[in-house]
Design a protein around this nucleic acid. Sequence first.
DNA 1: CGCTCGGTTGATGCACATCAAAGGCTGTGG
DNA 2: CCACAGCCTTTGATGTGCATCAACCGAGCG
Lengths: 231, 231
Amino acid sequence: MPISPEDIRAISKFELFHNSNLYRMESLFSGAISRELKHRDYFCRAGERAESFGLVMSGALKLIRHSPKGEDIIVHFAVQGDLVGGLLMNQPKISPFPVSAKAMGPTRVLAIPRRTFQDFWRPNADLLSRLNSILYRRMNNIQDDKTMFSSPLKARIATLLIRHLDPAAGDELQSLSISLTRQEIADALGVAVESVIRTMRDWVEDGTIKKSSERGHEFVDVGRLVKCANP
Amino acid sequence: MPISPEDIRAISKFELFHNSNLYRMESLFSGAISRELKHRDYFCRAGERAESFGLVMSGALKLIRHSPKGEDIIVHFAVQGDLVGGLLMNQPKISPFPVSAKAMGPTRVLAIPRRTFQDFWRPNADLLSRLNSILYRRMNNIQDDKTMFSSPLKARIATLLIRHLDPAAGDELQSLSISLTRQEIADALGVAVESVIRTMRDWVEDGTIKKSSERGHEFVDVGRLVKCANP
DNA sequence: CGCTCGGTTGATGCACATCAAAGGCTGTGG
DNA sequence: CCACAGCCTTTGATGTGCATCAACCGAGCG
């Protein structure tokens, strides 16, 4: 299905398009279609030709890289307003997606044709500049990960959680903007699930993490996490 | 010292500026100064205000992130034609460099003022688009690193070496585009020097690596390395 | 000439992986 | 509605790759 005026309004709130002219925005989404994904559906799979890219309208996607020997690792969690494969569109030739994008819970994504990027996004310096900023932040995050590589697992899990705190909340006890399974945390850090479980079990015991009534949802004590992250 | 017409000619060969109009290029470097760095000199230090960014004219820089507890890890090797801190200029405010950039041997870098980026680079969609491409590649590399995180050290060193093969050479026995010390390899992978030494000692013994007469220089057998990288 | 830097080796220990086994929760299809 | 499969979680026992520590060498350099 094609995109609606409400979509446009929602999009104009995203950082990438904030304060953009609405009338010019229409063109940025020409040919776009809205895709409803169910939990564990794929938006795209690594290796497929990248004919279009995605803008996450709601929900979240995990971007997964597959290693030759069957290990999957998560390189990014794409949430509302995030692009998937946006950088790829800039490449001179149609190239394969380097990652698979898998829905975490019900998720809606706008699929925008490569052509539209070439025609309307690429010539738009303002847009590219914002794209750069976002990319820069992602790069920074992943470099942080690399820097923490040799820190103890405890610290690495803590930084991961801190990064995904819900900006809405305020106090010491906050919740995450996306709910992550232990498996996903393990995959994001490239470690074994069991190890993640063991560290987080300790946190539940000492009160750093409190289980919520709502299943799968947890609150974290940010102050304590920060101490774990920078020992 | 200001930049010369020869510089402009050299620059126009870099991927970032290939096929650009020479007359417009002048403006892209207004206010730029050429800096000669000696081995181990810093182009910039993490935490300094980023008033300018760099274009590597010759030699190489290593970009180093410092972890709180004194560990340094190398996030990127910037070689001829690479930008240092280019993305930073795009940010709305002057921000601190997230990395230190240290010369590996004699190196020449053009320092270009932030102002010039804002005035001439930022509005240039074509340039930003190329910037994106480069960034995309860097991102891909670092994601690869992350994917290989849990592979045995042997495989990780092998991929690092393969990535820095000199594109000039052809056959099985190739040399690297920048010569890396064991220490640098260790820092780039976030592992201990001793571990790097032990694996590479084996490679020297079994002939995968041959020492060159020129000190510090080595040739690698690409075929064998590839086997190590994908076991 | 002493200093720093890169390289090297061996001994020891630990953090995390791996393997095995089992229980809960969800969705699906007979 | 129940059975079954798939996924996530959990715990315990066992193994190992790499870090750490300590010591030493050679080369370049001010």
